[in-house]
Structures are given as C-alpha cells and as structure tokens.
Amino acid sequence: RLRTTITPEQLEILYEKYLLDSNPTRKMLDHIAREVGLKKRVVQVWFQNTRARERK
C-alpha cells in the first residue's frame, strides 16, 4: 500500500485545525478532508497520530 504524501500547505491547514480542536467530530473530519483534499480516513489517522505524539 502506498503512503499518502501530505504537502506543506495541507500540513499547515491540519495544524491550524488541530490547535482549534484536537479531537474533531465526524462532521468536522469530513469538512477538513474536503478542505485539504485528502480522504477522511487519512485526516482521521493524522489527528490520531498527532495526539499520540503530543502525549509523549
């Protein structure tokens, strides 16, 4: 399986959204995914991984 490459522009948007809410609802994930042009599951995993990194 190929990994999804997230561009610096997409990362910037994702981090902005993360600062507003680190645990977004399904509806918010849909909205964020459309905004950055990624699949909802990719955005969901990015948020999970970012939360895990923050806990370390």
Rank of each mutant, 00 (worst) to 15 (best):
K40A: 14
T50E: 15
G37S: 05
F47G: 00
R53S: 14
R34S: 14
L38V: 08
L19W: 07
K56D: 13
R55W: 09
L29I: 11
Q44M: 08
H31Y: 07
E54W: 05
E9W: 06
T50M: 09
T5S: 10
F47L: 02
L11A: 10
A52H: 08
E9C: 04
Y18N: 03
G37V: 02
I6Y: 12
T4H: 08
P8C: 03
Q48H: 08
L19H: 06
E54Q: 02
Q10M: 05
T25Q: 04
E12F: 13
E12H: 05
T5M: 07
L11K: 10
T50H: 11
V43C: 03
E9R: 11
S22L: 03
L38M: 08
V43A: 04
K56G: 14
V42I: 10
D30R: 08
F47R: 00
T5N: 15
R51S: 13
W46F: 06
R26S: 13
Q48G: 14
I32P: 03
L2Y: 08
E12G: 11
E9Q: 08
L2H: 05
Y15I: 07
V43M: 02
T7W: 02
T5L: 06
W46C: 02
E35K: 04
K40P: 14
K17H: 04
T7V: 07
Q44F: 04
Y15M: 10
I13D: 03
I13H: 03
R26K: 13
H31Q: 14
G37W: 00
L2Q: 03
R51G: 08
E54H: 02
L11Y: 08
K39N: 08
N49M: 12
K17S: 08
H31C: 12
K39L: 13
P24L: 03
M28N: 04
S22Y: 01
D30S: 10
R51C: 06
L19T: 08
Y18S: 00
P24G: 01
Q10E: 02
I13E: 10
L20S: 07
Y15H: 13
R1T: 10
V36W: 03
I32G: 00
N49P: 02
F47I: 01
K40D: 09
M28W: 03
M28T: 11
L29P: 02
T4A: 06
D21F: 06
T7Y: 04
V43F: 01
E9G: 08
D21C: 05
K39H: 10
R55Y: 12
M28G: 09
K39E: 12
N23Y: 10
K39D: 13
L11S: 10
T4K: 04
N49R: 04
T50G: 05
L20W: 09
L14E: 00
E54I: 06
T7C: 06
T7P: 08
N23F: 15
V43L: 05
K40L: 15
S22T: 10
Q44S: 06
K56N: 05
P8V: 14
A52R: 05
L14R: 01
N49S: 11
W46A: 01
I13V: 10
D30N: 02
F47Q: 00
L38S: 01
R51M: 11
P8Y: 02
I13R: 11
R53E: 15
I6E: 04
N23D: 11
I13K: 14
R34M: 10
M28F: 03
L11C: 01
T7L: 07
T25V: 03
K17Y: 15
L2N: 15
R3D: 15
T25K: 08
K17L: 03
V42M: 09
R53Q: 13
Q48P: 00
L20C: 07
E35N: 05
K39F: 01
K40Y: 15
L11Q: 12
G37R: 05
T50S: 12
R1M: 13
N23T: 07
L14K: 00
D30Y: 12
T50W: 09
V43W: 01
K56R: 02
K40E: 15
D30W: 08
E12V: 10
L20E: 09
T5R: 05
T25S: 10
G37K: 08
E54D: 09
R34P: 03
I13C: 05
R3G: 14
R41H: 14
Y18P: 01
Y18G: 00
K17F: 03
R51I: 13
D30A: 09
V36C: 07
Q10V: 06
Y15R: 14
T7E: 15
L38W: 01
E54F: 12
T50L: 08
H31A: 12
R26V: 14
T25H: 03
K56T: 15
R53C: 12
P8G: 03
E35R: 02
E12C: 07
T5W: 05
T50C: 05
V36G: 01
L19I: 14
L2K: 14
K27E: 13
R55D: 15
R34N: 14
I6V: 06
T4F: 10
W46L: 00
R55G: 13
R26Y: 15
T5E: 13
N49C: 06
L38Q: 02
D21E: 13
I32V: 07
Q10Y: 01
K17Q: 11
R53F: 12
V43E: 00
Y15S: 13
F47V: 00
P24Y: 00
E35Q: 06
P24E: 00
P24Q: 00
R3N: 15
R3A: 13
K17D: 05
K56E: 15
K27Q: 13
K40S: 14
W46G: 02
R53Y: 03
D30K: 13
K56Q: 03
Q48R: 08
E12W: 04
V45A: 06
S22A: 13
N49H: 04
Q48E: 15
L11W: 07
E9P: 07
L38E: 04
V42N: 07
A52E: 15
I32M: 05
L2E: 15
K40G: 13
Y15P: 01
K56Y: 15
L14C: 00
T7N: 07
H31F: 06
T4Q: 09
E35A: 07
R41I: 11
R41L: 13
E54Y: 02
E9N: 08
A33H: 01
S22M: 08
L29K: 03
V43N: 01
R51V: 12
Y18V: 01
L11M: 10
L38F: 01
H31M: 08
N23Q: 12
V42L: 09
T4D: 15
T5Y: 06
I32C: 03
Y15Q: 13
L19V: 10
K56I: 06
Y18W: 05
I13P: 02
H31S: 14
R55V: 15
L19N: 10
T4P: 12
R3Q: 15
G37T: 00
T25G: 05
Q10I: 10
V45T: 11
I6Q: 01
H31E: 15
R3I: 15
T25N: 08
E9L: 07
T25L: 03
K56M: 11
K17E: 10
K27M: 07
Y18C: 01
R53M: 13
L20N: 09
R1C: 14
Q44K: 11
R55M: 13
A52Y: 01
Y15W: 12
L20I: 10
V45I: 10
R41F: 11
V43R: 00
A33L: 02
V42W: 04
F47H: 01
L20R: 08
T50D: 00
W46M: 01
K27T: 08
Y18I: 06
L20H: 05
N49K: 04
L2T: 13
E12Y: 04
R26W: 14
L14P: 02
N23E: 10
T4V: 07
R53T: 12
K17T: 09
P24N: 02
K27D: 15
P8W: 07
I6P: 10
L11F: 08
Y18Q: 01
E9D: 12
